[in-house]
Each structure stands twice: as structure tokens, then as C-alpha cells.
């Protein structure tokens, strides 16, 4: 396993970040990844930045549909209901 024991470079590590966060790295890769992080503040900051980015992305979903659209939606529902009642009645 010569390849597995070689140290990761920072440039290689950034390509594995998602697999690391998703926990899909092979055990040997995971060891190399963790070993690199222990000695590299730059990559540690990079992972932290990625986590922050994901958190910011998650906040985008707090936007909701406008009140007008909401009212329109209920009107649509009532029209649909009336149509169904007419058809079935």
C-alpha cells in the first residue's frame, strides 16, 4: 500500500472534502485525510469554511412565498373545489 501511506497534499485534499463530509472515504483515505488536517491549519480552515458555506446555504430556504401568492393559492383551491363539486354533483 505505497500509495495509501503517501501524504496528501492540500491540493488533493480539497478535492476530497465532500467525500470527507459525507463520510464516504475509504478507511485508509480517511486516515490520510485526518493526518493531513492535524498538521495543516490552511486545510482545517478550508473545511470550516465549507461547513460555514453549507450553513449559509441552509438559511436561504427561510425565504417563503409572498402573502399575495398565498391568497391566490387559496383562491385557486376554492375554484378547484367548486369545479369538482359541480362535476360530481
Amino acid at each position: 500500500m505505497r500509495h495509501a501511506s503517501r501524504e496528501l497534499t492540500c491540493q488533493e485534499l480539497v478535492e476530497l472534502v465532500t467525500e470527507y463530509l459525507e463520510d464516504t472515504l475509504a478507511p485508509s483515505e480517511r486516515l490520510r485525510f485526518d493526518a493531513h488536517l492535524r498538521t495543516c491549519p490552511g486545510c482545517t480552515a478550508y473545511i470550516e469554511q465549507m461547513r460555514t458555506t453549507i450553513r449559509v446555504l441552509g438559511k436561504l430556504s427561510e425565504e417563503s412565498v409572498s402573502e399575495d401568492a398565498r391568497r391566490e393559492l387559496l383562491a385557486t383551491f376554492r375554484t378547484w373545489k367548486a369545479d369538482v363539486a359541480k362535476r360530481d354533483g
Binding site: 497534499t9 492540500c10 490552511g42 480552515a45
Partner: peptide, 13 residues
């Protein structure tokens, strides 16, 4: 140190 940061990312904490 090929493949290592020239300008490392900074902490956003």
C-alpha cells in the same frame, strides 16, 4: 512543498 497552500484560507470563526 508542491501542492500545498501559497495563500491558505483564513478562519471565518
Amino acid at each position: 512543498w508542491p501542492g500545498h497552500w501559497v495563500s491558505p484560507p483564513s478562519s471565518w470563526s
